[in-house]
Write a protein that binds this DNA or RNA. Sequence first.
DNA 1: ATTAACTGATACTAAATTGGTATCAATTAA
DNA 2: TTAATTGATACCAATTTAGTATCAGTTAAT
Lengths: 175, 175
Amino acid sequence: MKVLTKNTDYAIRSLLTLGAARGGYLSARAISREHDIPYQFLRRLLQEMIRHDLVVSKEGASGGFKLAKDPDEIRIRELIEIFQGRVQVSECMFRRQICSNRARCVLRHEIMRIGQVFGREFDSITIGKLMRDLDAANTRSAHGCIPAAAAAGENGAIAGKERDMKNEPQRMTQA
Amino acid sequence: MKVLTKNTDYAIRSLLTLGAARGGYLSARAISREHDIPYQFLRRLLQEMIRHDLVVSKEGASGGFKLAKDPDEIRIRELIEIFQGRVQVSECMFRRQICSNRARCVLRHEIMRIGQVFGREFDSITIGKLMRDLDAANTRSAHGCIPAAAAAGENGAIAGKERDMKNEPQRMTQA
DNA sequence: ATTAACTGATACTAAATTGGTATCAATTAA
DNA sequence: TTAATTGATACCAATTTAGTATCAGTTAAT
């Protein structure tokens, strides 16, 4: 279960870079190079963010993009909504045929609660906050990367060595 | 952003039904009918759940499936891990080329935290809990369905009427 | 004026994931 | 013997995600 898709991930990184540029225009090319984001792909993301008033652009030579608002006003949630659609727990859960059968609306309560927890989490994280995190991380000594397996939390992957239906490549690239 | 895919959704419903059967074997056909889950699709889900020791089966006429363990021991998280892969915030976030560039590991802290919040949420919900929720909902009066737009939380969809990159059908089926 | 670096807009393709169908063999209760 | 069942796969379709390509217009610098 991937919480952030590349769209969103790239968008976040781009906004962080634009934030660091502090008002100056940065070209899509520059951002693309900085984060190794496919150029044309990034351009589409940027245009989408223009449409949502997250960034503004300047055309022509030495043109580019800059943030359209205070980084603290840009919430991860908005990026997720733009690039991954509204946060919903299960799209089919509230459709009539489901709701009218025996287990109708069973999960409603938990569903709503989780939806809200997620919403709040994503609302609480802004580009401004991440910029400060980044600053802090940069002033402290450069710390290494942690392996992907730790991303899920306390314990690594729950599933054992058996073949899952959903089986991910399990790459553990280490520097 | 769909938190539960149909796989997982169907699996949860199936387990709830098996839980309600209290030890008796229930056929895939019966479960399929109960929840309008495509029969062959459901069978695959059930087999996967056998492999993960969530259910056991009995072959032959009047065979079927039953829970392999206490419903309180079956966590939604495990189902998500099985059918949607390990809960991770961004798969690319910890790969070398990203981590070694300027914004290396920026998001690490927030990422880890969110991953843990999600993990905990999903760990805390078990089939047993949902069964009790269902019972409670059934004893109280039958309540109607809520429209899908409310699923995200406090406010409806954040995005306005503009065309998003990720644009969902926006069906508001009402009973 | 010309040019090079840029954005605006959009069409297209490829890859991965998700959702669903079909088939055949083996098992078992009636 | 038969009908209902699971075991095991192979296949296909739809959707979503990721990435590429192209052409037109804008602008700063020369």
